[in-house]
Design a protein around this nucleic acid. Structure first.
Lengths: 252, 252
DNA sequence: ATTATAGTTCCGCAATTCGGAACAACAATG
DNA sequence: CATTGTTGTTCCGAATTGCGGAACTATAAT
């Protein structure tokens, strides 16, 4: 793993521009990436030949349909997604808020499935979105339940950066929150990743009792009032437990 | 476009192995691809660094979660998919068969959305699946409605290869079928891509009257009997027209 | 006619990739 | 416990490949 194709990895810079831009001309890519024109030209030609970029009639580029194929393969092969979907739908219908499924990916959490509501004002999370393990209810419930050594290693040289108005940036407070989550079996966050939003999350375990993912209810902060919380906590934990059971988990 | 990063394009061979394999070890990739061990090692390292491959605990590789992100971006940016989904759902519920949305992609057709049924025996199409433009109802309805010059250019040096038991391999028959489709506004296929299956498809047009996609009802051949066809034809054409209208198409 | 802008090609230099071979780590076997 | 096999990783000299400034083409705007 020391050895890599630098050219290949470098070309990724061009592809990444399409995470934030739908269509780009050759020149726009040159300007945005800061890579010499000739090199961009070569890289784009390669991505196009592979099918990851598509050139339309006017000569502008967008992401290729090949991503549909690979993307769906990945989605299909994630069996936790299959196991979780029905319970997620029921939870969404019961609480009328968006429901998310979140996986750990190294030192980050990644949103792999979402169910939206029909509210005129709604939270809109992108699948594939990442968050650090210390911010947001889903991330933190994962952090709370990973093995202690891993957690300590992560916390040891962690720099807490504020992401939104409510992000926890005090390590002592973070540890306290993790303790509480382990004790109560859920975690709650207010405006940690996005202002005016709140997230309530419970852990999903595999047959061996290891944390595998988190399921969460997310919505506007104002709708998560004190009276409503107990019911939501109960429901999200029930949904999480249902999925865990399906994956072979037996409560200790 | 003459100039390409050969290294980058060559690495695609390794990634493509994952279209047919869920997990692969380093050695399996070496054997399957026929590329020297050292080179595979380098390529895999690059894909991993980019996030397109993921290495699990046992040292085997699978497609990375990054594909979820890119795949969903592509899906979201295809506005025809948004426009078509509600009509597709209603069609699926009305006829109780799988419903597909198919786009043209150069000289091929590509399935970009599917709605499955709950039948115990059901057709299962993968999103991203490709088919030549001459085989299958959806492919052929697209071929029937593209501009005449393009169609003639395609037909000119076309070698008709049988794909399944019912594939049309006679160019005269193909032309005849295309004529009929243009006249009737739908196309029907039996066992052209997959034995024992049938597909019934209607064209979707954009505001300028160009064919943009095809919608189709697909299922087991035995369930598409003569008495049922007229109703199915009516329904699939209605769904297609609805989507076309939504995209700004006005019937001539 | 002139200037500007985007896209493409050329080409010599140098950095990167190539791949055989050797090595390390580990499991299976006699 | 030595031996053989399997898999993953590193080394290194040869040479292919990528690099990028510059020049060229095409088309649009002034």
């Amino acid at each position: 793993m020391q050895n890599k194709n630098k050219t290949v990895v470098r070309s990724m810079d061009v592809l990444n521009l399409f995470l934030t831009h739908t269509k780009l001309s050759m020149n726009e890519m040159v300007k945005l990436s800061g890579i010499p024109k000739t090199s961009v030209h070569r890289m784009v030609g390669s991505w196009e030949e592979m099918g990851f970029l598509h050139r339309d009639a006017e000569g502008t580029y967008s992401l290729g349909l090949l991503f549909l194929q690979f993307g769906n393969l990945v989605a299909e092969r994630l069996d936790i997604r299959h196991a979780a979907l029905p319970a997620m739908e029921r939870l969404r219908d019961a609480v009328g808020e968006a429901v998310h499924l979140v996986l750990r990916d190294g030192e980050e959490a990644i949103y792999i499935e979402k169910l939206d509501t029909n509210h005129p004002v709604r939270l809109f999370t992108k699948i594939g979105k990442k968050a650090p393990l210390y911010a947001g209810a889903s991330s933190r419930i994962i952090l709370a339940f990973i093995p202690e050594e891993e957690r300590e290693a992560y916390l040891a040289d962690l720099a807490l950066e504020p992401i939104s108005s409510g992000t926890i940036i005090d390590k002592a407070l973070l540890r306290e929150s993790l303790e509480r989550s382990r004790a109560t079996g859920y975690s709650f966050s207010r405006s940690e990743l996005e202002s005016y939003t709140a997230e309530l999350s419970a852990p999903i375990f595999d047959h061996a009792g290891r944390i595998l993912a988190a399921i969460s209810i997310a919505g506007l902060e104002v709708t998560f009032d004190e009276e409503r919380l107990p019911e939501l906590v109960c429901r999200v934990k029930a949904a999480a437990d249902e999925i865990s059971t399906q994956l072979g988990y037996r409560r200790p």
